[in-house]
């Protein structure tokens, strides 16, 4: 679709405009991949990247995991759910979907797009940066989605970066 997908609003929120098919693609991806983030679907390699260790030392790592492990999962799942909830709201008109996000919902979009990319890349086995030299594999929906989410997150970051100090 043409033009930026996001526009910064004075209250710290964002206005989002996407093609209705893009919205459907995002809803489908978030629903399908949510179990990987929540731990209901067991993909150890992907979860290892989503929730990486803090320490080399196994004892210190176990303590850290015990202390913050659950809340890290809960926060990220809550962000994905907030992302889904905003996608399920909004309005569709003339093939375009439009919604207004407050600052917290905008942060949830950033978190969700990042986690979806990490999950997709883990499933596709992206092991090094040379992966990006070839472009998406158009016969693989996960590959196309990974590239699309990169495009979307880049635009989201442009809209949100204007608000950071410095």
């Amino acid at each position: 679709m043409a033009g930026p997908a996001f526009r910064s609003l004075p209250d710290g929120g964002l206005s989002v405009r996407l093609g209705w098919r893009e919205r459907e693609l995002l809803v489908d991806a978030a629903r399908r991949l949510r179990p990987v983030l929540s731990g209901d679907e067991d993909l150890p390699r992907v979860r290892g990247r989503l929730f990486p260790p803090a320490y080399d030392d196994p004892e210190a790592e176990a303590e850290y995991r015990n202390l913050v492990g659950d809340s890290l999962v809960e926060e990220r799942v809550a962000a994905l759910d907030a992302f889904l909830a905003t996608l399920e709201g909004g309005q569709t008109r003339l093939l375009a979907w439009h919604a207004t996000l407050d600052a917290e919902q905008a942060a949830a979009w950033l978190s969700a797009t990042n986690d979806l990319r990490l999950i997709l890349a883990g499933r596709l086995g992206v092991a090094d940066e040379s992966h990006w030299e070839t472009g998406p594999d158009l016969s693989d929906r996960f590959s196309v989605l990974l590239y699309y989410l990169g495009w979307l997150q880049e635009r989201l970051l442009t809209a949100l970066s204007g608000r950071l100090p410095g």
């Binding site: 890349a121 092991a127 880049e154 970066s161 950071l164 100090p165």
Partner: peptide, 19 residues
């Protein structure tokens, strides 16, 4: 190899207040 460079910059600015 996955995380966008612009995302890393954003997070470092947000969390540590870097310019």
């Amino acid at each position: 190899p996955v995380t966008l460079m612009s995302y890393v910059v954003f997070v470092l600015r947000k969390l540590f207040g870097h310019d």
